[in-house]
Structure formats: C-alpha cells, structure tokens
Design a protein around this nucleic acid. Structure first.
Lengths: 224, 224
DNA sequence: TGCGTGTCTTGACAAATATCAATTTTAGTC
DNA sequence: GACTAAAATTGATATTTGTCAAGACACGCA
C-alpha cells in the first residue's frame, strides 16, 4: 500500500482521531487493490469480511430483488463503506460495483472491531459515521414514502445545489439511469420528471442542470 | 422515577454492559413521564435534547412533508429511540406521537454523550444500536425502491411471522391505517393488497392474519 | 472520420396506486 | 346493549408510474 493511501485514510473523519499506534495496528493486514470499471466487488448476503475505503474512482451500492435492481448509494473518494455490516459482523444488505476504475483499501473487519474497542476516539467517530448513515437512509425512506417522483428529483437537485456550491447549476456526476435508480424510478420517468421542471426554469443539457431560480423549485415541495 | 424503571432500562442491550457508576451518572438528571394517547412528543426539526426510553405503551415515529405524513417506525417497550440525533446533537428527522398511554424516561442528550465517551462498553452497544437502525432503514428503502405495494406487505408479513414466532398467524398490533402508512401506501391500497393475497391462502379477520402456507407467500417475492 | 454500441428521450399504452365517495364494520362510551 | 365516532372496506375514477418500442444522441474506438 502506498504511503499516500495511508495518509489519505488517516485524514478521514472516521480515523483522524485515532492514536497512531491503534491506527497502524488496524491497518497492518490491510491492502490496496485496483479494480476495473463495472466490476462487482461483493454481493448482498455475503459476509462483511473487510471494511472498504475508496481511494480513487466511484463505487455504487445497490440492492437486488426479484430481478430488479436499485442504487442505494454512490460512493466517492475518500470514504469508507459497509461499516455497519462490519461492526455487527452480519451479512451485507447491499451489493457493490465499481462505476469507474477504482482503488480500494480493504481492512479486515476483525481488526476494525478490535480497534474500535481499543480506541475511544475511533468509537466516537464510528458512531458519528453510523448515525449519519442512518439519517441518510431515513431521508431516503421519507422521500420514497411521501413524495412522488418529480418531487424526489427536486429534493435531490436542491440538496446537490447546496453540496456542490456552484450557484445556479448542478452537475450530475453519474449516468442518468443510475440517478433514476437511486431516486427510485425508471430512466424514462426521470427524463419526464426533468421535463416537468422546465416550467420552474430548469434546463438540462447533458450532465449539466441549470437552476436559475431555486426558490421556485423549493415551492414545489411546499413543506415547512 | 421508579426503581423498576431503572432496572428495566439497565437491562436493555444498549445499557447492560455499562459500569454501574457510569449508568447512574448518566441517569442522575433523567426523569420518567406519563403521556396520554395521541400526544405529540416532539416534531421533526426540533433539537434532540433527550434520549427517549419507552417503558410502557406504544410510540409512532413519523415524517411529514407537503401535508402528507408517513410512519417510519413503531416503538414498543422497552426500547430507546432517537439515539442518532442525540449522538450527533442535530435536529430530529422524525416526529413522534404516542399511540396509547405511554410511560417514557427522558435522559438528557448531553449526559448520554458524556457516558458514551466515558464507557467503552456503552460505546460498543450504541454502535450496535445505530448499525441495526441503519440496516433497518436500508431495508425499508430497498423495499420501497424495488417492490410494489403488495410485495411489501408480503415481506412485512413474513418478517412478522418470524418475529412473532406464532406459527401460521400474525397479529397486526397497530391500526391498519398506521400499517399502511408504514408500508408506504394508502389504507385503501393495503386493504386491496390483503385481498390480493387471498389467492395465496391469506385470511384476514380484524387484526389477526392467518398464513397457512408461508412458502406460497415467499414465492411471490421470488428473490434469492 | 465513421462505425457501433449503449444511453437518453419521446410517444403510445398498460399497470399500479391514489383519490373520492359511499357503506359496512369495529371499537369505545355511557 | 344501544349509540356514536372512527376505522376498514368497496367501488368508481383519476393520477402516477412503468413498460415497450422507436428514434436521437453521445461516446469510444478503430
């Protein structure tokens, strides 16, 4: 594993508070691996043997059922994933595949659990991470239960607008069909949802979405 | 607060590993309170000032948006709720109301956070709790994204069948309109979904659901 | 540059689900 | 045990969303 990888990992909020000693101990059996695009990393129901840390590239977490498939999260560097399953030592709930060439560090789950008991700072950070993940999923479930598809798109666009910080426009950083799947709809529905937002000034061109008047979008959600 | 309350609380997986000293310290400012049915305990976006522990009764966590409302979880004794928001000291994502007369112990969030830093066993247990909550929400989001409403009902019934352990029948322990809202559909749709399962042998009578042949239900989900 | 593959969009249609209104059933109260 | 109010069901209809098929567009690669 590269020194740079180690540095980048240690700088993650999840690990940055750890005693260096515990950190090196946890990573002693970890290793980095490069994967081509479109490779399945693991399947739901597999055991969670490694905490994954994405260093470069993009990874999609998705779920499968009855032939269908839904994107649950899109992971970007540098961040860890499947912490919950590692903690609980339980089967994975999601599958993962690389969306582009990716470099991933794999940390044995047993070492993560050990470190977690040894280092209170790590325990705090893991809690934070899990709590945030929980809240993210609550948000998704909320959106799915009480909004229709074009409202979910509005919600997504407004969130991205804040996250990306680029005034008046949003870059869609995944294929639209992946975004559709993430938002719980078909690509066709997403296409139509975008069109329904033209009335609010939204213009789409490729992966660029122009949002001249966020207020008008927000009005479509009309909740407190 | 009753001694019995203290005993029951300490017996929760979340707290059972804690040093008694830390436990009493955490509960020194806690207090129990009785609430009538149908009382709103807190609103989403409120600050999470107290970790709640339900001792008796039933509580529904729900989300609101654009006039609509969706049940996100149904809490039964003895269990804690809104741990994630307390940990992160962030606004609540859900509202709560009692579904029946309820007795709730309120523990100041600051004391929870302190105990969390002081007691590694508690930290581990809190992680467990959050990780389970996360996985629960992932399950809900999965179900909503890739199943249609009667499949979600099937999924619910099969899960309850296992949890309740009563062979061949399931007791619906909330009003059907609440169950409908929990499953992300209208009461009318739930009623029709039940009817569509008659073909698989399911019979509903009030809050009793007879499921003579779980296999036939499972076949409707047809995933691995 | 041109070819080929896959994504995105559009239209027509079908299926799923919500909404509205009316009725039956249930549960709670005096 | 009758009365009331809420919940559950049912039917008719509207809306939303998915499916299928075709064409437009974009991208990678020879």
């Amino acid at each position: 594993m590269r020194d740079q990888d180690l540095n980048d990992i240690q700088r993650l909020p999840l690990f940055s508070g750890m005693a260096t000693e515990h950190f090196s101990q946890m990573l002693r059996a970890a290793y980095a691996q490069d994967f081509p695009a479109q490779l399945q990393l693991f399947r739901q129901d597999d055991r969670a043997d490694f905490l994954h840390v994405l260093m470069e590239g993009t990874v999609a977490l998705f779920a499968q059922s009855g032939g269908r498939e839904a994107t649950m999260a899109i992971i970007r560097p540098v961040s860890s994933f499947i912490l919950a399953a590692c903690m609980l030592d339980q089967p994975l709930l999601m599958s993962a595949r690389t969306m582009s060439r990716s470099r991933i560090v794999l940390i044995p789950a047993t070492d993560v659990r050990k470190a977690f008991r040894a280092d209170p700072e790590f325990a705090v950070a893991a809690n934070r991470q899990l709590a945030m993940g929980f809240r993210d999923m609550v948000g998704q479930a909320k959106s799915l239960k009480l909004r229709k598809s074009n409202e979910r798109l509005v919600d997504y666009l407004l969130t991205e607008l804040e996250v990306q910080g680029t005034a008046g426009r949003v870059l869609i950083s995944a294929e639209k069909r992946v975004l559709a799947s993430f938002l719980g709809m078909t690509p066709e529905s997403l296409s139509r949802a975008f069109k329904s937002l033209e009335a609010a000034g939204v213009r789409v061109s490729g992966s660029q979405v122009a949002i001249p008047d966020p207020q008008r979008l927000r009005a479509l959600l009309d909740d407190a």
